[in-house]
């Protein structure tokens, strides 16, 4: 029982990181109808900048800000100077360009920093806290949990309660009508990329201290899990990304804890297969609107 409580709590923290990353994929999908295969590599670049900042200044908080800002800049640059020039009439060119970008970014990181994993310390202890005799979760897990929840709430407020959010949602689903209402749709698409890329950068920053360290490929598995989650939840559904992320995080932690680490990827793929068999559109997919 004690072990279960511990695994559930750490699984929740891990799941929220996956949820954040999946949410970033949903944001881009909704803004630009692109599955951004370069999301992990772009976020890793931002986290390298954060790593440089924490090395120079010693401040984790400045590094967090650097990750967000660099994430936004990378998102801006990739959308404006690359994706915008890709033909949009079918999804394949965008996907190929994104995969090409992954290769370029991996190579550049490799040339600059080499293949080693650079260690990045967590800003809080990773030793579990105890409630009575029961190990629950570490201060770092608690930090991850609170920050991830904070970001989710902030995004929900931005999208649902502000004028910018209203424009972002309208531009994403009805570009032509939005233009007729005076909304600058290309600008909204850029803002969508910037937001998405910043959220992904924070997710990767939160992930690194729980992994071997920072490396060009550090976020690859996170991308696979988050992509699974986004497909499970339906790429259009922010709620699906969050619920699915937490579910997959808890599943991975439970399977790793009870059956061994080797079983975790199999469990994730089994879940993906099962959901795709039962609900090919994703669990939270919105039913297609009927024509009037």
């Amino acid at each position: 029982m004690d072990r279960l409580a511990f695994l559930l709590a750490t699984g929740l923290a891990r799941g929220l990181v996956i949820a954040l990353f999946a949410l970033s994929l949903v944001i881009i999908w909704r803004a630009a109808r692109i599955v951004n295969f370069a999301q992990a590599a772009m976020a890793t670049v931002a986290v390298y900048v954060a790593y440089a900042v924490v090395t120079w200044t010693g401040s984790y908080w400045l590094a967090l800000v650097a990750a967000v800002v660099t994430g936004m800049l990378v998102g801006f640059a990739v959308e404006r100077w690359l994706i915008r020039r890709v033909p949009r009439d079918n999804p394949l060119p965008g996907m190929i360009v994104a995969i090409g970008l992954v290769m370029i970014l991996h190579s550049v990181i490799g040339i600059l920093f080499g293949p080693r994993h650079v260690p990045m310390r967590a800003p809080f202890s990773r030793e579990p806290l105890y409630v009575g005799d029961v190990a629950v979760l570490s201060p770092y897990d608690l930090f991850v949990l609170l920050l991830a929840l904070g970001i989710v709430v902030a995004l929900a407020v931005l999208f649902n309660r502000t004028t910018l959010g209203l424009q972002l949602r309208a531009a994403a689903t009805a570009p032509e009508v939005s233009r007729l209402l005076g909304i600058r749709v290309p600008r909204m698409v850029t803002i969508g990329w910037m937001l998405s890329s910043a959220v992904a950068a924070v997710a990767v920053l939160l992930l690194i201290p729980t992994e071997l360290g920072l490396n060009a490929h550090s976020a690859d598995i996170l991308f696979v899990h988050a992509f699974t989650v986004a497909v499970l939840g339906g790429l259009d559904s922010p709620v699906g990304a969050i619920v699915g992320g937490v579910a997959v995080g808890v599943l991975i932690t439970l399977v790793t804890g009870f059956l061994g680490a080797g079983m975790a990827p199999i469990a994730v793929l089994a879940l993906l297969t099962l959901v795709l068999l039962v609900r090919p559109g994703g669990i939270f997919a919105v039913k297609e609107a009927r024509a009037a």
């Binding site: 209203l166 424009q167 949602r169 689903t173 209402l181 609107a289």
Partner: peptide
């Protein structure tokens, strides 16, 4: 905009 509510659609009009 079919994914927005009636109220949100109207607000968009006055933006």
């Amino acid at each position: 905009v079919t994914e927005l509510t009636v109220d949100e659609n109207l607000h968009l009009g006055g933006l």
